[in-house]
Design a binder for these strands. Structure first.
Length: 858
RNA sequence: GCCACUGUGGCGGAACUGGUAGACGCGGUGGAUUCAAAAUCCGCUUGGGGUAACUCAGUGUCGGUUCGAGUCCGACCAGUGGUACCA
C-alpha cells in the first residue's frame, strides 16, 4: 500500500520541526565563512503575491545552497512598512494606518512561513517600529550636521480642489485622481539629501561592483548622466531695465554646433522669465500654462514644444553681427545646467521640433557622412561628423571642434568648461502622515533646529483621522506645538515625513543587530555586512539602489560604516505574468475561467472570454493567482519548484496552471518511487571496482551534479532544475537494469546527491524522503555533493564534422586524443558521406578546432 | 520623448568564451493498462519534400563580418521595466 503524497501534512510537520530546532538561526560561530543573503523586503500590502513567491524562493535557494556549501548564512526578513497604500486604506476603509499595517504584516508573515523560507525570524523588524524610527532620526541628524541634508523650496504636484500634494501616481493624465481637477505645480519647502555631492563617485565606483548586473550599472550611469560641457555668456543686445542681467548664461554639451544656433531658450522659472513676467500678462499666462504640465519627466518630455518670444535678443559670441532671439520654452528645465540653452535645430531633435513649430531657421553645421542629403526637415542629425558652415571650425571633426570652441570661449573670458550631471539632489520629504517624521523643529527666531537626541524618537501621534484631505500632521496642533530647544520660545515641528526610500536605504545594515540601541551595531554588522548577495526586482534598478549607494556613503562620512558600497552582489529578477481574460463585464480572474481547447469561458455562465497576452500580474487586470490557493492545493514545494523551473530568474515568468500541475505530478512520482524502492546501506568503497559500463552510469550522474552546481552558482536555476530532473530520469530508468551490489551503490549515491541538490528547491519533500535512505540526520545539515573529476576526465568526446559550416556527421575521440589534429582529420575524412563529398570536389581548406569541430570548405 | 532589457517549435525555455539549434518541461498525438474513465507507464512531436537512406529551410525583420552567427556589428520592428512623490 503506497503512502500518498500529502504535501500540506509533511510541510507543516517540517516547518514546526525546523522552527523548534531553530535551524535557520544566523550565528557566526565556528570557523565557517559568513554569507549574507538578502532579498528586498516587502511592502505589507495585505497578502503575498506571486512576485513575492518568486523573489523569496530565489533568495531561499541561494541561502540553503550556501548553508550546504559550508557557510554560516544570515538570511533575514522584515517589512518596508511606511507608505501611501496605508493612508489610502485609512481614507477608504476608516482604519488607522498603523492597525492596517500590523494586520497585513501578521498575515503576510504567516504566508511567508507557509512557503518554508529559511529565515531567521528572530531578526525581523518593521520600518514603522519606534526603535527603527529613532535610529533613522539619529542618522538623519548626523547627515544634517555633516551637510548632507538641507531644506529648500521645490516643485510638487498640487491639487487645487483637494488642496493637497499629489504623488505622480495620483496624477492621471494631468488630473488629480480623486478630484479630477487639473493639477498644478507649487513650490514648497522640502528636505533634500546631497546625492549630487557623490555624483562622480557613484559613477566611477560602478566599475568596482563586479557582481552587479551590467544592465543596472549602465542604467545608473546614464541616470547620473555626467557630461563635460561648456557654459557660455550670451550678451543681451539692449539693456532691459526689467531684467537685472546683462548676459544669459547657457550650458551646452555640443559647443561644436554653435554656428548652427538659431535661438536661445530659457526655462519658465528662469530668473529672467520671472522678471519679465512681472509686467507681462501674456508671459504670466504662458508660464502658468507651463506649470500645469506636472512634475514628471515623462510628461514634460512628451508635451508639445511651446515657446514664448521675449523680444529680447542676444549677440552670437563667435559670429559677428548675428543675433539670436530669446524664447521662454516649456522643454527647458531650470534644474539642469543653467536653465538656458542655445537651440540648434539641425542637430537636436527637441530644438528641431521647436524650430519647426515657430518657423525658426535650420542651419546644418555637421555633415552626416552616411547620408547624402544635407537637408534636415523632421529628423535631426545628432551624430558626429565633419563641421561645415561654421567659419573657423570648417573641416574639423566633432571632437576637434568641441575643444576648439571651448578654448575660444575661455580665451575670450565669456565662458568656462563645466561638468554637469543629470542627477539632482534627492527630495526626501513627503507631506504625508504614514512615514518616519523628520526630526526638526522650525523656530521663528532660530530657524531650523534639530530635535535634541535625548528627545528622540519623534513618533507619529496616534489620534488622527483621515476624513479631512491632506496631511493630518498639519492639523494636529498639540503634536505640532513645541518649545524651541535653543531659545525655548514657541515653535512648530516639521510636519513632513521621510520618503520611504530613506527607510529602505539602510535596513540591510540593521538586520545583524535589530534590537541595538545604536542605529548600526558595529560589532555584529562587521561580521556580515555588506550583504554578499542582494536579490530584488529590476524595477528598483535606479531609485532604491542608487539612493542606497548614496546613503551608505553618507553613513561612511558620519562614521557608521567603513565601506562605500551597500551590496556586494546584486541580482535582479523578472516579473510574474499571466494571460488576461476579458468578458463583456470587464476583466475576469483566472480562477473563474474554464478552458475548452484554446478557448476560455466564464465558469458561472459559460460566456466566452477574450484571451489577452501575458502581462505583469496586477489588480487592475485581475490576472492574479493567489499564492496561498496554490500552496493549499499543491503545497509550497510545488509552488517553489514551478517558480524555478521554466523561466530564467532574470526574465519575466509566465504563470501557467499546466506547469504547476506538471511540477506536482513530478514530485508525486519521486515520492512514489522512494516509497517503493528498497535502498541498501551505503558502502561506497566498493565503487572503485565498478566496470566500464557501470562507470559510464556514474559519469552521467556526476555530469548532472556538475551541471546543477554550475547552474546554481551562476543563478541559472531553471537549468539547475533541468539537470536535476535529468538525473532523476536517469536514476528511474536504472530500475529496469539487472541489479547487483555495485549498481545498488551507484543508484544510492545518485539518489543521495539528487535529494541534497533538490533540498534547496523543495526542502520539505527532500527532508521527508531523506528519512527513507538515511535516518540519522536532517538533510539541511548535509554537505553539497562533490563531483568526481577523475570520472569526468575519462569521458569520450564527440566532434562535429561540417562541410561549409553545415553539420554532416560526427566522430568520437578519446580524451587523450584531444590534441591530435592529424588523427581527428583522418577520422573525419574516412567517414562515408565525407569521403564521397570530398572526392567529388576537392576541399579548398580544412579547419580543425581540436576536440570540437572540423569544417571542410569545398 | 529619453535610458535599459527582451525577441529561438503549438507554449515556457536550453545551447559554456562564435563551433552538432531545440536540453528539461508543458501541451498535443499514438499505444499499454482499464468493463470504461481518471491516474500511471511507453513511443512520437520545428516546418517542407521523400517509401527510405536522406535532403532543403529555419533562432523578430533587413543587411554585414567570419571557414562557421541564436551568439559579434549596423539599421529597423514589436514587447517590457524605469523616468526622480507607487514600492
Amino acid at each position: 500500500m503506497q503512502k500518498p503524497y500529502i504535501a500540506k501534512k509533511i510541510e507543516t510537520k517540517w516547518q514546526k520541526e525546523w522552527q523548534k530546532k531553530n535551524v535557520y538561526r544566523a550565528s557566526s560561530k565556528n570557523d565557517k565563512k559568513n554569507y549574507y543573503v538578502l532579498e528586498m523586503f516587502p511592502y505589507p500590502s495585505g497578502k503575498i503575491h506571486m512576485g513575492h513567491v518568486r523573489v523569496y524562493t530565489l533568495g531561499d535557494v541561494l541561502a540553503r545552497y550556501k548553508r550546504c556549501s559550508g557557510y554560516n548564512v544570515l538570511h533575514p526578513m522584515g517589512w518596508d512598512a511606511f507608505g501611501m497604500p496605508a493612508e489610502n486604506a485609512a481614507f477608504e476603509n476608516k482604519i488607522h494606518p498603523a492597525v492596517w499595517t500590523k494586520q497585513n504584516i501578521d498575515n503576510m508573515r504567516t504566508q511567508l512561513k507557509a512557503m518554508g523560507l529559511s529565515y531567521d525570524w528572530d531578526l525581523e523588524f518593521a520600518t514603522c517600529d519606534p526603535l527603527y524610527i529613532e535610529c533613522q532620526q539619529k542618522i538623519f541628524l548626523d547627515f544634517y550636521k555633516n551637510n548632507l541634508a538641507y531644506r529648500r523650496k521645490a516643485w510638487a504636484n498640487w491639487d487645487p480642489v483637494d488642496q493637497t500634494v499629489l504623488s505622480n501616481e495620483q496624477v492621471i493624465d494631468g488630473k488629480g485622481w480623486r478630484s479630477g481637477a487639473k493639477v498644478e505645480r507649487r513650490k514648497l519647502p522640502q528636505w533634500f539629501f546631497k546625492i549630487t555631492e557623490y555624483a562622480d563617485d557613484l559613477i566611477d565606483s560602478l566599475d568596482e561592483l563586479k557582481n552587479w548586473s551590467n544592465q543596472v550599472k549602465v542604467m545608473q550611469k546614464n541616470w547620473i548622466g555626467r557630461s563635460e560641457g561648456l557654459k557660455i555668456e550670451f550678451k543681451i543686445e539692449k539693456i532691459n531695465k526689467q531684467i537685472d542681467a546683462e548676459n544669459i548664461e547657457v550650458y551646452t554639451t555640443r559647443p561644436d554646433t554653435i554656428y548652427g544656433a538659431s535661438f536661445i531658450a530659457i526655462a519658465p522659472d528662469h530668473p529672467i522669465s520671472k522678471s519679465l513676467a512681472a509686467s507681462n500678462k501674456e508671459l504670466q499666462r504662458f508660464i502658468s500654462e507651463c506649470n500645469q504640465i506636472g512634475t514628471s519627466e515623462e510628461a514634460l518630455e512628451k508635451e508639445e514644444k511651446k515657446g514664448f518670444n521675449t523680444l529680447i535678443k542676444v549677440f552670437h559670441p563667435l559670429e559677428e553681427g548675428k543675433f539670436l532671439p530669446v524664447y521662454v520654452a516649456n522643454f527647458v528645465l531650470m534644474s539642469y545646467g543653467t536653465g538656458a540653452i542655445f537651440g540648434v535645430p539641425a542637430h537636436d531633435q527637441r530644438d528641431l521640433d521647436f524650430a519647426n513649430k515657430l518657423n525658426l531657421p535650420i542651419k546644418v553645421v555637421v555633415k552626416d557622412t552616411s547620408n547624402k542629403s544635407e537637408k534636415i526637415s523632421k529628423v535631426a542629425f545628432t551624430g558626429d561628423g565633419e563641421i561645415i558652415n561654421s567659419g573657423v571650425l570648417n573641416g574639423m571633426n566633432t571632437s576637434e571642434a568641441k575643444s576648439h570652441v571651448m578654448n575660444l570661449i575661455e580665451n575670450k573670458k565669456i565662458g568656462k568648461r563645466s561638468k554637469q550631471f543629470r542627477l539632482h539632489d534627492w527630495c526626501a520629504s513627503r507631506q504625508r502622515y504614514w512615514g518616519c517624521p523628520v526630526p526638526i523643529i522650525l523656530c521663528d527666531e532660530c530657524g531650523i533646529v534639530p530635535v535634541p537626541i535625548t528627545q528622540l524618537p519623534v513618533l507619529l501621534p496616534e489620534d488622527v483621522t483621515f476624513d479631512k484631505i491632506g496631511n493630518p500632521l498639519d492639523y494636529h496642533e498639540d503634536w505640532k506645538s513645541v518649545k524651541c530647544p535653543k531659545c525655548n520660545k514657541n515653535a512648530k515641528r516639521e510636519t513632513q515625513t521621510f520618503d520611504t526610500f530613506v527607510d529602505s536605504s539602510w535596513y540591510a545594515l540593521r538586520y545583524p543587530a535589530p534590537n541595538s540601541k545604536e542605529p548600526i551595531d558595529k560589532k555584529e554588522m562587521i561580521k556580515w555586512s555588506p550583504p554578499d548577495q542582494y536579490v530584488g526586482g529590476i524595477e528598483h534598478a535606479i531609485l532604491h539602489l542608487l539612493y542606497s549607494r548614496f546613503f551608505n556613503r553618507g553613513l561612511k562620512k558620519t562614521k557608521y560604516v567603513d565601506f562605500d558600497e551597500p551590496f556586494k552582489g546584486l541580482f535582479c529578477q523578472g516579473m510574474v505574468c499571466h494571460k488576461t481574460f476579458k468578458g463583456p463585464n470587464g476583466w475576469v480572474e483566472p480562477e473563474n475561467v474554464r478552458f475548452r481547447g484554446d478557448r476560455a469561458f466564464l465558469k458561472s455562465s459559460n460566456q466566452e472570454l477574450k484571451i489577452g497576452r501575458s502581462e505583469k500580474m496586477s489588480k487592475s487586470k485581475k490576472n492574479i493567482v493567489d499564492p496561498m490557493s496554490i500552496i493549499d492545493k499543491y503545497g509550497a514545494d510545488t509552488a517553489r519548484l514551478f517558480m524555478l523551473s521554466d523561466s530564467p530568474p532574470e526574465r519575466d515568468l509566465d504563470w501557467s496552471e499546466n506547469g504547476v500541475d506538471g511540477c506536482w505530478k513530478y514530485l508525486k512520482k519521486i515520492w512514489g518511487h522512494f516509497h517503493n524502492y528498497k535502498f541498501t546501506q551505503p558502502n561506497f568503497s566498493i565503487l572503485k571496482d565498478a566496470s566500464e559500463q557501470q562507470n559510464k552510469i556514474r559519469r552521467e550522474i556526476h555530469t548532472c551534479i556538475q551541471n546543477t552546481t554550475d547552474s546554481i552558482e551562476s543563478f541559472r536555476y531553471n537549468s539547475a532544475v533541468a539537470s536535476i530532473r535529468k538525473l532523476s530520469n536517469l536514476l528511474l530508468n536504472l530500475d529496469n537494469i539487472d541489479s547487483n551490489l555495485i549498481l545498488e551503490q551507484i543508484i544510492l549515491e545518485g539518489w543521495q546527491s539528487y535529494l541534497i541538490m533538490l533540498s534547496p528547491i523543495t526542502p520539505h519533500i527532500a527532508e521527508e524522503l531523506w528519512l527513507l535512505i538515511n535516518k540519522k540526520s536532517s538533510i539541511l545539515l548535509q554537505k553539497w555533493p562533490e563531483v568526481n573529476r577523475e570520472l569526468l576526465k575519462e569521458q569520450k568526446i564527440r566532434m562535429a564534422i561540417q562541410i561549409n559550416g553545415k553539420l554532416k556527421n560526427t566522430i568520437e575521440i578519446e580524451q587523450k586524443e584531444i590534441k591530435d589534429r592529424a588523427l581527428q582529420e583522418s577520422k573525419a575524412m574516412a567517414l562515408d558521406n565525407i569521403k564521397s563529398a570530398t572526392t567529388k570536389k576537392k576541399p579548398k581548406k580544412i579547419i580543425v578546432i581540436p576536440g570540437r569541430v572540423i569544417n571542410i570548405v569545398l
